[in-house]
Design a protein around this nucleic acid. Structure first.
Length: 828
RNA sequence: GCGAGAGUGGUGGAAUUGGUAGACACGCAAGAUUUAGGAUCUUGUGCCGCAAGGUGUGGGGGUUCGAGUCCCCCUUCUCGCACCA
């Protein structure tokens, strides 16, 4: 028999499967569908080991489900818009389009070398006009429904990348750009936004979703729902002027000794007394000049300035000074707060710094007898549960949560406040001042204002001849043919929007695009179109199992849920969650346990590994490294173990041709038992994405086979080999196909076989190892029949000589028997 | 600070409901085979000890006949959020 040479068989089978449509999705199969989805890759130009780590186990699961009898849809595509293409364009003087399509071509080849059962016929690339015309179409529909809107607003802007950034693209305390690590600044621009906040509450509802707790809590945290009260404060002496504050602790309102407005607050100018103008102006311009780094990293010390104005506490008529301070953020809540220093850490620090009073208005029940003096507080009282209101007029003695409700009711009744739910989540800012993205399909006319591009003019195409210079502005701004157009309303001169969409738009609906790729290709679109084949989308979606990296927990995974809900409300989908089940794989790290990067020199090249070991070994090793969700550090030596394993599987299968009718019943039994135990373990493990232990179980079966070599040629031996190949088929599709064709060519592809089943009785041991402990310490192990009763077990254990010696002279006080497992003898 | 998760041999990692700690692999050691190297095979391998035995899952305490697993305290690490009112 020939040697196992992976590269000779792998490309052969890849080609064979594709040419014979062996793994294609068949709508008419009658089998239950299973939509398996792995996050679509960005075509960076080289398939990284991280892609393998994400996709190989995913493919294994898809193949496993196929063998289990499901009709599996496992598509792939490319998230092909984005900044790297533009940077490459500027650097190499090449159009981002050419750069991107060259990369896609290269990556297609690399992806094919993985041997995944990808549905290549359903492939999409988001930079294809036939793809992004639908992104534009969705935008127009959302615009009609007021789900998209334009707003002049301060935005995070990266001077280096010359673009606005969504909040989640700004990282860390230093507030740096996620791409280039440069500090982000604030800039006022007219921006397009999508009303994701409309779905804030629904996005918090994870009912019926089998998602990792981690992602759920990250999303909850991100959405940041908080229940409170919003109420109005009038400015003393300027009764027409008022501002609103949001608080989650209305029960502490009697402890308000000042108010704080964010420096950007609209009212600041109007209420500032002339004698305070100078200092306020200085403070504001200082705050503006400070970039975000300074503003947040300044030791969190609270500073601010007094405006000279006073506000009226609507509960008791008290006058409180109005300050401005940059610890209050314009974009959260109302951009203004009530300062209750007795019961809030930040307010406390602020009050102590500026000599403001810090009265106590809620205490614990224990403190009721001796209410602390506010002036002597060393720190604020942050108690909420079971807190009791004091120094609060008619509300004295009211206990949380009644205290919240009674004050809220009072405010509502008196008409100056009401209950309010606040979210940290902001509307999704989708404008990007970049060229390589989906053009936002609107035009601006001098006389008619903003006008949507008519549906039948979609797509608004990106020019192929834009010039890339490092000017910092979108090349679309200088491209006359693109820029200049006519108004769809009046026919007069108009200019196109030159901003493009955030690429998270593309990835918010790609899994629906897969179902009917390039649907209505070349056709003129109308408003009432369906963006996909309705029967197909309803049959295949939602996605049954989604897998991908945890890094997308609050961005992509939130946006794609939002998009599904929005599209459902547009009547385009009949479900509201894109996927019920999500699994996040961990990250693959370098040998040094650090993130892989070129600068560290710890990057592992999958192409080299494939060349050396073959695809099957690389796939299997990645799955063997550890639990998939935990991630793993690359260990260059470990892969040898998998290479050896497949070699030995190959060698073992040579014995298939041999035959014998001279096998001991003992060997036969051992083999059969191991086989069924292995099938059971592998089936359960694969179901739960525990690839590492599944592979370990097959390795154990291999070890048993080697130890029972006298069984070679027997029927059960052959059965073990066959089923071992079936179990390995999803893990190592090529070698198993090759060997399967050697031993059972008449049955067709190994990947079209039924997943092996197991029999509990066959898997059961008939002898078990009984552990005998004396006073909790292991003293002996005995082989006893599996079905032994409690009494029998106890008798056997007590009779064991070793045990007896430990019990000499001792009195037995208690005997604990766990049938089938252990006996623990407790002696005096 | 808040939230989530994790600390098990030289290494990656296994351990149903609390019931044999270290499966499976890597590495290492000895041996076999080989002209040599490589490859392959066999055996061994938590730590201390010649052995009997003792000891052992980040540290400390507790519950229990019995704890890697449950409870309390501490500690270290990773990730996410962070002046959110």
């Amino acid at each position: 028999m020939q040697e196992y040479v992976p590269k000779e068989i792998e490309s052969k089978w890849q080609q064979y499967w594709e040419e014979h449509n062996l793994l294609d999705f068949d709508f008419d199969s009658g089998n239950q569908k299973f939509y398996m989805l792995t996050m679509l890759p960005y075509p960076s130009g080289d398939l990284h080991i991280g892609h393998w780590y994400a996709m190989a186990p995913s493919d294994c699961y898809a193949r496993f489900m196929k063998m289990k009898g499901f009709e599996v849809f496992f598509p792939i595509g490319f998230d092909a818009f984005g900044l790297p293409a533009e940077n490459a364009a500027i650097k190499n003087n090449i159009h981002p389009k050419s750069w991107t399509y060259e990369n896609i071509k290269r990556m297609q080849k690399q992806l094919r070398s993985m041997g995944n059962m990808f549905a290549w016929k359903n492939e999409v690339a988001s930079c294809d006009p036939e793809y992004y015309k639908w992104s534009q179409w969705f935008f127009l529909r959302m615009l009609e429904e007021d789900m998209a809107y334009r707003e002049y607003a301060p935005v995070d802007y990266c001077n280096n990348c010359q673009t606005t950034l969504a909040r989640e693209q700004v990282w860390g305390e230093e507030r740096v750009c996620e791409r280039c690590d440069n500090p982000v600044v604030k800039k006022d621009l007219n921006q397009w936004k999508l009303r994701i906040t409309k779905y804030a509450d629904e996005l918090l509802d994870f009912d019926g979703l089998d998602w990792p707790e981690r992602v759920r809590s990250m999303q909850e945290n991100w959405i940041g729902r908080s229940e409170g009260v919003e109420f109005e404060l009038k400015i003393d002496g300027l009764k027409a002027l008022s501002f609103r504050v949001f608080t989650t602790r209305p029960d502490t309102v009697f402890g308000m000794t000042f108010c704080v407005l964010a420096p950007e607050h609209k009212l600041v100018d109007q209420i500032t007394k002339s004698e305070n103008k100078e200092i306020v102006k200085t403070y504001i311009s200082a705050a503006q000049r400070k970039d975000e780094i300074e503003r947040t990293s300044e030791g969190k010390s609270k500073d601010g300035v007094f405006t000279g104005a006073y506000a009226v506490n609507p509960m008791n008529g008290d006058l409180v000074p109005v300050w401005i301070a940059d610890y209050v953020i314009e974009s959260y809540g109302t951009g203004a707060i009530m300062g209750v220093p007795g019961h809030d850490e930040r307010d406390f620090n602020f009050a102590r710094k500026y000599g403001l009073k810090t009265p106590v208005v809620v205490v614990s029940k224990e403190q009721l007898g001796l209410i602390p003096d506010g002036d002597e507080l060393a720190e604020p009282i942050l108690l909420k549960e079971d807190s009791v209101m004091v120094n609060s007029a008619e509300f004295d003695g009211v206990v949380w949560p009644d205290s919240f409700n009674q004050v809220a009711d009072h405010m509502q009744k008196e008409g100056f406040g009401e209950r309010q739910v606040n979210f940290r989540l902001h509307d999704w800012l989708i404008s990007r001042q970049r060229m390589w993205g989906t053009p936002i399909p609107v035009v601006y006319c001098d006389s008619c204002g903003m006008q949507p591009v008519p549906y039948n003019e979609l797509p608004v195409l990106l020019p192929d001849d834009a010039e890339f210079k490092p000017t910092g502005e979108s090349p679309l701004k200088y491209h006359k043919e693109f820029l200049k157009t006519s108004c769809p309303e009046c026919g007069g001169d108009a200019v196109r929007e030159t901003d493009t969409m955030d690429t998270f738009i593309c990835s918010s609906w790609y899994y629906y695009a897969y179902v009917s790729p390039y649907w209505k290709k070349g056709q003129t679109l109308v408003r009432d179109d369906n963006p996909w084949e309705v029967e197909k989308i309803n049959h295949l979606c939602p996605v049954d199992q989604y897998t991908g990296g945890i890094e997308h927990a609050t961005m992509h995974l939130l946006y794609f849920r939002f998009f599904t809900k929005a599209l459902a409300d547009l009547g385009l989908l009949n479900f509201r969650e894109p996927t019920k089940r999500l699994f996040n794989q961990g990250m693959i790290l370098g040998e040094d346990h650090e993130k892989m990067s070129k600068s560290r020199g710890n990057v592992v090249n999958p192409d080299m590994l494939v060349k050396q070991y073959g695809t099957d070994t690389v796939r299997a090793y990645l799955m063997f490294l550890g639990p998939w969700d935990a991630g793993a550090a690359w260990n260059p030596q470990g892969i040898e173990g998998l290479a050896r394993f497949f070699k030995s599987v190959w060698t073992l299968c040579n014995s298939y041709e041999k035959s014998t009718d001279n096998v001991s019943p003992d060997t036969e039994k051992k083999l059969r038992k191991s086989l069924h135990q292995t099938i059971k373990k592998v089936t359960i493990d694969l179901q739960n994405f525990r690839f590492n232990t599944a592979i370990a179980a097959v390795m154990s079966l291999r070890n048993v086979l080697k130890a029972q070599a006298d069984g070679i040629g027997s029927d059960v031996w052959k059965e073990c080999l066959e089923k071992m190949l079936l179990m390995l088929a999803p893990i190592a599709p090529h070698i198993t196909e090759e060997l399967w064709q050697k031993i059972k060519p008449e049955s067709g592809s190994v990947h079209r076989q039924q997943w092996p089943t197991f029999d509990e009785d066959m898997a059961a041991d008939d002898l078990i190892t009984l552990v005998v402990q004396v006073n909790g310490k292991l003293r002996d192990r005995l082989e006893i029949p599996a079905g032994s009763s409690k009494d029998e077990t106890e008798k056997i254990a007590l009779a064991a000589p070793k045990v007896k010696s430990y019990l000499k002279g001792e009195q037995i006080r208690k005997v604990i028997v766990v049938p089938g497992r252990l006996v623990n003898i407790v002696s005096s």
